[in-house]
């Protein structure tokens, strides 16, 4: 380590990293907390139906529940596999 390093202020700001990680995590956990309890079961059943027709992985489907004062939204997202020539 050179003497110059003492004058550099390039130290990573770990507090900033902590804040960013927490903001993402807390937002996610709050969202999960407000979800109706039937959501995981719904997700599983939807997945089964879709898999009857399309070959998708377990993690290709996401079900999101959002609510505000006005309305509740159920968002279903399916990532289709890349088209392959069978």
């Amino acid at each position: 380590m050179s003497l110059l390093d003492y004058f550099k202020t390039t130290k990573p700001n770990s507090a900033k990293v902590a804040k960013e990680r927490l903001q993402i995590l807390v937002a996610h956990e709050r969202n999960v907390r407000n979800q109706p309890s039937y959501l995981p079961a719904l997700q599983q059943e939807l997945l089964k139906v879709i898999q009857k027709y399309i070959k998708v992985d377990q993690d290709a489907i996401s079900v999101n529940f959002d609510s505000d004062d006005e309305q509740e939204t159920l968002e279903l997202n399916i990532v289709l596999p890349e088209h392959t020539n069978n």
Partner: peptide, 14 residues
Amino acid sequence: LGAMLSVEDVQDIL
């Protein structure tokens, strides 16, 4: 020093 969450940071989150 940027090595600890500030009051504002914690309040922003909670």
